[in-house]
């Protein structure tokens, strides 16, 4: 298993170099898709999946250890919980400040920007939360499926 793996993948200089050059641009594009979702097609799901695909590409071209150097399992779990907590936290805070659950206009009492601007900004916060959760869950699914649960040695 081990030597087939070492000869079959990860040893090609062209693939390694091009992936190393490509990954920052893919991550930048993912962040652009999340942030620019108000004005163009895109949003939390799509940007999160693109951000996750950058790590999956790293794990395919190098090996799983390399991708876990850039995003450890602990950081992955942190991002998963952070995304869900951002989403539910925004809803809960807007409920605490006098509105309904997920009624962003109530956040105007916290920072006065104007209720309609808070609608726009609340959608942005929620999309960031969705993006974090989707990114880390996609990476986690790929790690588990490609190593069949051991998380230490991939395809």
């Amino acid at each position: 298993m081990r030597d087939i793996y070492e000869h079959s993948a990860g040893e090609d200089l062209i693939i390694k170099t091009s992936v190393r050059l490509l990954v920052p641009f893919i991550q930048l594009f993912g962040l652009y898709v999340i942030v620019h979702g108000h004005y163009s097609p895109g949003g939390g799901f799509q940007g999160g999946v693109i951000l996750g695909a950058a790590f999956i590409l790293l794990a395919l071209a190098y090996d799983m250890k390399t991708s876990q150097e850039y995003m450890t399992i602990r950081v992955n779990a942190l991002f998963t919980n952070l995304g869900a907590a951002i989403f539910i936290g925004v809803g809960a805070v807007s409920a605490i400040f006098g509105g309904l659950f997920l009624d962003y206009a109530a956040l105007n009492k916290l920072i006065p920007l104007g209720p309609i601007e808070w609608h726009s900004f609340g959608i942005f916060l929620v999309e960031v939360g969705v993006g974090f959760t989707v990114m880390s869950i996609m990476v986690l699914l790929y790690w588990n499926l490609s190593s069949s649960g051991t998380l230490d040695e991939g395809l």
Partner: peptide, 26 residues
């Protein structure tokens, strides 16, 4: 439906195929 098309291009054609291939190779 541009948003749905974008989602399908990233999720269906990208990540889902990789999941299938990694599970089949395992």
């Amino acid at each position: 439906a541009v948003d749905v098309a974008f989602t399908e291009a990233t999720v269906g054609a990208g990540v889902s195929t990789i999941f299938f291939i990694s599970a089949i190779l395992r």
